[in-house]
Design a protein around this nucleic acid. Structure first.
Lengths: 81, 81
DNA sequence: TATTTTTGTTGCATTAATGCTATGTAGCAT
DNA sequence: ATGCTACATAGCATTAATGCAACAAAAATA
């Protein structure tokens, strides 16, 4: 059985995680700890190599004090706001 | 290689899909069409047998004219509101 | 400069999300 | 009774999300 490594799904989700994280002065490891995931998972998300599960999106939003819709979008996000 | 069928993850996400869908008088098939997924996927979600991907959560929220946070939660949701 | 911290990248393993088919049931019409 | 629609459930296949280890590259800082 072979698995073609995912990393780059067909359906991207744009996000503002890095921006929001930086605004709080948190490292990826810090955010990962708050959200209860591996720090590299945060990296994958910020690089938009894949989109998070809803559970993770909800945890990240809470960790960054943001609404899910403020952090994640099906359409490209502009900087700021 | 064997796969133990998922259906019942460890990390549940509570939702108000059925309620919101009924409020709009939509069948599962109707909502599935709008969200671009299989009608049984809606069933699984309503029965909370698993939680959706963020992509799907965003599409469902849009299909029901609701905020993601209004439809989905990491903690049990009370009826109404 | 040397050390430490943060981030990027690759590879592999596991589990969850989703599709699809088929079947069963219950309700509501003809 | 027959048919139709909506929903439940189960089996199997595929792909995505995540963990984790190892290592490289930057960047920050002592």
């Amino acid at each position: 059985m072979l698995w073609i490594m995912s990393r780059n799904p067909e359906e991207p989700v744009y996000n503002r995680i890095e921006e929001a994280r930086a605004a709080l002065g948190l490292s990826r490891q810090d955010l990962a700890d708050r959200a209860g995931v591996h720090y590299q998972t945060i990296g994958y998300l910020e690089r938009e190599e894949y989109s998070p599960s809803l559970v993770l999106a909800l945890r990240i939003a809470k960790s960054l004090n943001q609404e899910v819709s403020e952090l994640f979008s099906l359409t490209p996000l502009k900087k700021g706001k």
